[in-house]
Design a binder for these strands. Structure first.
Lengths: 108, 108
DNA sequence: CACATTCATAACTCTATGGTTATGGGATGA
DNA sequence: TCATCCCATAACCATAGAGTTATGAATGTG
């Protein structure tokens, strides 16, 4: 059962290794665990665990084909993160707008 | 010396307590450590440490006034985070465009 | 069937970190 | 001056988590 909270997303993406894995999947598309392990600089079980965390956060999908597992990025999962940053900036804009309004009213 | 890497940002925002502090500063504006401690559910030193991490990531600014320190959100610091998510989505769009091109060419 | 390959899980270690209490330093007020 | 207040730092503890090796389950291959 995958959740899609900002908390899980931030925590999943906080680790640089995991972020790199996710980036590779975004840039180069679907890949097997073996391919991801090559060049990751860590053991295969470590990669599997990271992929598990990413999957739990909804950031990747896995597809089983024979004895290998293909992982792919689920970029839509970034939506809550974009929303969150948007909310934080909206308030900045809102306060900026308020300031503008204030200045306009003072100008009259 | 504050840095503005995505890594520091993700790590700083991965902790829910820190994220809540940052949100409060975004929503309610500048506040003292005492005000932030009230309602945080943790001790004052813990809040100070969190604020230190946020400051290190460039997410907040501090202003000393008498014996109290006022913290405020620096929303601009979220830019690298927005860029990063944008890059991840751009590649999705790019591949989507490629697919569209392919379909158009197949249609001819 | 026997063996190899691919991945996931288990069990464990070690470090990073989020929390605490104790303390100190600078500013304020009596 | 002396006591108080606000905050930061130090020292410490406990847990989370990122890595490891060992192993097993499932699949492919001789």
């Amino acid at each position: 059962m995958t959740q899609y909270s900002p908390d899980l997303l931030f925590r999943a993406l906080a680790d640089p290794t995991r972020r790199t894995l996710f980036e590779r999947l975004c840039l180069d598309g679907e890949q097997t665990v073996g391919a991801l392990t090559a060049g990751a600089g860590i053991s295969q079980p470590a990669v599997s665990k990271h992929l598990g965390v990413l999957k739990q956060a909804g950031l990747v999908l896995d597809r089983h084909e024979g004895r290998q597992t293909h992982y792919s990025a689920q970029q839509r999962a970034l939506a809550p993160l974009v929303d969150w940053t948007g909310r934080m900036n909206r308030f900045w804009e809102a306060r900026f707008d308020d300031l503008e309004d204030l200045l306009k009213r003072m100008d009259q």
